[in-house]
């Protein structure tokens, strides 16, 4: 059973105003000087309460910097909450920052193995899937070359092919659909739809308000790290649209 529960989750980043400090600065300033470089707190997520069960399809919408992607990374377990309780049950697969996580000196085949292992595969299961991943990526002989020589489009293609080769229980997606050229994009869309349909639980971050109601049944609208509205997908999107419209009208 896939399940997500967030209770009073807060996430606060602490950053320095000027720049990072070195160990020398740290020791000297602590000993002799007042800090000229105060720590600022960024409250990325505030008092988030969320409960998702098997079969739920959640869309997260909101302005840039509202905390949508942070929320997704928190759900993926990459960020841990500063306070509050996070419970995620089920095998998670996340589609974001796809171009990251390659060993550029290793060739495509090896990278397929590394990323699959990171997703919890074993050598036997990778052997079984390798060919299918390679075919889907359409990279052909390039897979024998170090990833160093790939274009960024090729990297994303490979990453997408690997990441979508598993059947996740919980799927987290962050607007990754700009994958490769036009032909590959439509193929990628199809696979995404397929995966979203199969996933037991889906969370999507997107600005594509028109297609979200087809994919999701619930939505949250995030604003400045808080959930401003939670409910049925169509209703939340309508409310968000009218608020954005009002904002523009006020500005005009």
């Amino acid at each position: 059973m896939a399940r997500i529960e967030l209770e009073h989750v807060n996430l606060t980043f602490r950053v320095r105003r000027e720049r990072r400090i070195g160990l020398k600065d740290f020791l000297i300033k602590r000993l002799f000087l007042q800090s000229q470089n105060p720590i600022m707190e960024v409250r990325a997520l505030q008092d988030i309460n969320l409960r998702l069960n098997q079969g739920d399809r959640l869309a997260i919408i909101g302005h840039n910097g509202a905390g949508k992607s942070t929320m997704l990374k928190l759900l993926a377990g990459i960020y841990q909450p500063s306070s509050g309780r996070r419970l995620v049950e089920g095998r998670v697969s996340s589609l974001f920052d796809l171009a990251l996580g390659f060993e550029i000196e290793a060739n495509g085949w090896e990278n397929i193995a590394y990323r699959s292992y990171l997703q919890g595969e074993t050598p036997a299961s990778v052997r079984a899937k390798k060919q299918a991943i390679a075919e889907f990526s359409e990279l052909g002989d390039f897979l024998n070359m170090p990833v160093r020589y790939y274009s960024s489009g090729m990297m994303v293609r490979l990453a997408f092919s690997i990441a979508t080769a598993i059947e996740p229980e919980i799927l987290l997606v962050d607007e990754v659909l700009s994958v490769g050229d036009l032909a590959f994009q439509s193929k990628a869309r199809e696979r995404m739809r397929d995966m979203m349909a199969k996933a037991h639980l889906l969370v999507v971050v997107s600005h594509d308000l028109d297609s979200l109601p087809h994919i999701c049944n619930q939505a949250i609208w995030m604003d400045h790290g808080r959930i401003r509205m939670m409910g049925l997908c169509a209703e939340v999107i309508a409310a968000y649209r009218s608020s954005v419209g009002q904002g523009q009208a006020a500005a005009a």
Binding site: G77, I78, F96, L100, G101, L118
Partner: peptide, 9 residues
């Protein structure tokens, strides 16, 4: 880093 940013290992 790139793995840390992608996967909670």
């Amino acid at each position: 880093e790139s793995y840390i940013r992608q996967h909670p290992a």
